[in-house]
């Protein structure tokens, strides 16, 4: 047990240290991207849109933009870190050690969550230049950010476990994550959509995460907040278990 604890801390330290060591790659790009979103969608186009659900457009989209960067970055952090370890071969440092699969998953998960939290802080700070943010439920905000970062860190880990070439880690972010995020209600309320598209949107898990975040910050949501939070927790548990099972079976990492 002591070995697992010390080993997990060592891996957590290594993975979080990586995020901070290469901060120019991990923290600056989302800051620049989100600044552009705030300028274009918030300041320029947002003025013409006016209010959304009773809030200035900039204030309405800010929580979604924070969540969008959390999703992209937590996923990218773990998929990149684990796949690089596989390609360079130093994943073997972990595999030959007595560290359990649960500890390995926790280590990579921590790296993704720290990246998600750090990026959320950066983007929130940038948002303050464009709009005011009065967080209604701060603890829930923290919970939603951590859990969503966790869900996408685990998804990134599973992607990296299966990936055999660099294309394999680019496909999911480009063809699955990006469309689901943009269609997950970052820039609009789903009530604006025709009924068919509203129904379809409810099958998009990212809709629930973005709305959880929006609820925790400005107090409104397109979906039931209880269902949304439960969905995040269920996803987290399912993906965590799947990652542990895949590592135990040695899929993608053992011959």
């Amino acid at each position: 047990m002591r070995i697992q604890l010390i080993g997990t801390i060592a891996l957590v330290r290594k993975e979080t240290g990586r995020v901070l060591r290469i901060w120019v790659q991990t923290l600056i790009p989302p800051g620049i991207t989100m600044s552009l979103y705030f300028i274009i969608f918030g300041t320029l186009i947002g003025k013409r849109i006016g209010e959304m659900e009773g809030f200035p457009y900039m204030e309405y989209i800010a929580p979604g933009l924070v969540m969008m960067s959390v999703i992209t970055n937590s996923y990218g952090n773990v998929v990149g870190s684990f796949f690089n370890a596989k390609i360079q071969g130093h994943i073997e440092e972990l595999l030959v050690s007595p560290l359990s699969e649960v500890s390995i998953v926790i280590g990579y998960l921590a790296g993704g969550i720290i990246r998600g939290l750090a990026v959320a802080t950066v983007v929130t700070f940038i948002a303050l230049f464009f709009t005011q943010i009065n967080i209604k439920h701060p603890l829930m905000t923290l919970f939603v950010i951590i859990m969503t970062a966790g869900v996408f860190s685990l998804a990134g880990l599973i992607n990296a476990i299966f990936a055999k070439k660099f294309d394999d880690i680019a496909v999911i972010p480009s063809f699955v994550l990006a469309p689901l995020t943009y269609l997950g209600g970052v820039f609009y309320t789903v009530s604006l959509l025709p009924e068919f598209w509203q129904t379809l949107s409810r099958f998009n898990p990212i809709l629930y995460m973005i709305n959880s975040m929006r609820y925790s910050v400005i107090g409104i949501s397109d979906v039931s907040i209880q269902n949304a939070l439960m969905m995040i927790v269920v996803f987290f548990i399912l993906l965590f278990s799947s990652a542990v099972i895949l590592l135990k079976k040695g899929i993608g990492i053992r011959q």
Binding site: I6, G7, A10, K14, E93, L94, S97, P98, L99
Partner: peptide, 15 residues
């Protein structure tokens, strides 16, 4: 240096 310290950690050896 970090490579060795981390590896020690994975074997449960305090930092």
């Amino acid at each position: 240096f970090n490579i060795l310290v981390n590896q020690a950690g994975f074997y449960g050896i305090p930092r």
